[in-house]
């Protein structure tokens, strides 16, 4: 089957088994290895990407369902040569990252969350992280960094109907 979709803003074509998990195409065909395949069961969140602006586990997304969709991976948020996404910058500034394995997924989940929930408090931030497992940090510094970023954005008046990512 041929599947045509947008990947980080560019047209992308896949020919093969429509039940191939999106994560495998990202990593093995497109070499976008920021997206991690860890549990492959929807439990850990390390494979989270945006499909049509929604944060979803790419390990459970058959490519056949991606036809016509727009996919954004962690590499699509910032190439590394550009300014980081503000959430990434905040994680770096707060020294929230340890081994880093969970962070691409964490950033993809939370960047969509802060965009849609600019007035969220700590409880909502924690609820949004339920599907992103981190073995290193104990989570609190991540929650602190997200809460700080939302505070800063509110103070800077960036929040009108949502934070743009």
């Amino acid at each position: 089957m041929t599947v045509i979709f947008q990947l980080n803003g560019e047209d992308c074509r896949f020919d093969g088994d429509p039940m191939t998990p999106l994560v495998d195409i990202l990593r093995q065909e497109r070499f976008l290895t920021g997206t991690k395949a860890v549990c492959r069961e929807g439990f850990c969140g390390a494979c989270t990407v945006h499909v049509d602006d929604e944060a979803v586990p790419s390990c459970l997304k058959p490519i056949g369902l991606v036809q016509g969709c727009a996919v954004t991976t962690i590499e699509g948020l910032s190439s590394g040569n550009q300014a980081l996404h503000p959430l990434q910058a905040n994680f770096e500034a707060a020294d929230a990252v340890q081994c880093g394995m969970c962070f691409p997924g964490m950033v993809m989940s939370l960047s969509a969350f802060v965009r849609d929930n600019p007035h969220a408090g700590r409880a909502e931030i924690k609820a949004a992280m339920v599907g992103n497992i981190c073995r290193c940090t104990g989570y609190e510094r991540i929650v602190d960094a997200v809460a700080d970023w939302l505070d800063q954005a509110r103070m800077a008046g960036q929040v009108v109907r949502g934070i743009h990512v």
């Binding site: 429509p18 039940m19 492959r40 929807g42 586990p57 390990c59 459970l60 997304k61 369902l65």
Partner: peptide
């Protein structure tokens, strides 16, 4: 095939994925 979150784990349960699928989305 609905959202795929159950079926995509079939191979991990030792079950082959179906050879023909129809998606409803």
């Amino acid at each position: 095939l609905a959202g795929g979150t159950w079926m995509m784990r079939d191979p991990r349960r030792g079950v082959d994925l179906p050879e023909a699928l129809v998606a409803l989305h």
